[in-house]
Design a binder for these strands. Structure first.
Lengths: 202, 202
DNA sequence: TTTTCGACTTATCAAGTAAATTAGTCGATA
DNA sequence: TATCGACTAATTTACTTGATAAGTCGAAAA
């Protein structure tokens, strides 16, 4: 694939991201995206085999951005506790983007035919690894208790997932105002800090 | 309303509870329930104005059973930490019953027209009060830190809600095996205990 | 007066269908 | 290798209908 083609692929990806972020997956047609990059619809299929694959490519892009951010976070010279806090913040930002894409609407989240199943499973595995590193670091430098349950990482992640889900549910019920997300952020941070206290060596 | 009528009402409630627990709300007809108590369908409407109201009555019954359990838990002579742990356990049992009733299927949970909206809102308020009492007790007897964020109770409850919710999602995705609930219980207990450590005076 | 019920109406839901939109294919072309 | 016009096939939507079950009402039994 030539340099020019790679550029084209990027511009398609970009147009798609904008459209999806604005209207969500189902409300965007391939014709529209093709129009944005001044191509025929058929040409898009030269680059992406299906509409779903195009969408996934957009999500994967966001995802790897997040992972990169975390990996550079890991290299920082700050305490494991601070890293956990920053992790929570970055994660929130990432999911906010996914919500915009419509990838996390109630319908897509609760759609068992969800095209993201595997994608999200892989992502969870990756998160467990990243968080595991932070926890291990905290253990080895004496910040965190050494007899920490080996399930703690998973539970911590599930708490974050659960708190966010609750909000997705509220959004669906139209019981969410502007600062529901602000509030979620607040809850996650407070919860994180009590948990950090709970796992710290006193 | 006579004594006999109160008995009839109870037997209707009972028959309804059994049917709903077995088949869920939508799969049970008023004719069936009427058959169980050897009455005509029209007679049920003498006691309960709608099918929904009958169902709600069943749920309210379970709910007040739970609240009673917790209120007697509050009177026990055990530490606040132990009370929190028992609270989590009782709460799980209560929700397991609601799931059986079909009141907590994904569809009903995510149905914004859910007939339970108000019921659940009231229940959450009640839970905040009950949990608040446990936390206050822990503060006043020196178990828990006195500078505990006043949002802690809410966050603790939201964590429990979130963890359960995650499981509802898994159930929907058919990614849940027999011991998903066992696992949920385990996660809630571990999370509870780290949080207790986090809020304890060391 | 309280309670029951048969016979009725009305609302809801599931299945099917037709029309329209859009995903995806293919052969031609530059 | 990259593009596209013209095609097909799959999905979605809106509508129809038939059936089932919710809910009403007036009469009558207790």
């Amino acid at each position: 694939m030539s340099e020019i083609s790679k550029e084209k692929e990027k511009s398609i990806l970009n147009a798609a991201r904008k459209r999806f972020a604005h209207y969500g997956f189902s409300k965007v047609t391939m014709d529209e995206i093709a129009g944005d990059v001044e191509m025929g619809k058929a040409s898009l299929y030269y680059y992406f085999p299906t509409k779903e694959d195009l969408f996934k490519a957009v999500v994967v892009q966001e995802q790897s951005e997040f992972v990169n951010n975390i990996e550079s976070l890991l290299r920082k010279q700050i305490s494991a506790a601070e890293k956990l806090n920053e992790y929570v913040e970055q994660r929130l930002k990432y999911f906010r983007d996914l919500v915009n894409l419509g990838a996390l609407s109630v319908h897509s989240v609760f759609d068992i035919k969800s095209m993201f199943k595997k994608l999200f499973e892989d992502f969870e595995a990756q998160e467990l690894i990243l968080l595991g590193k932070i926890i291990e670091e905290g253990k080895s430098n004496g910040e965190f208790s050494n007899d920490l349950s080996k399930d703690f990482v998973k539970i911590f992640l599930h708490i974050l997932q659960g708190l966010r889900f609750r909000v997705v549910k509220l959004l669906n019920e139209h019981k969410a105002d502007e600062d529901t997300y602000k509030n979620l952020e607040c809850e996650m941070k407070i919860a994180t800090n009590y948990l950090i206290k709970g796992i710290s060596c006193k």
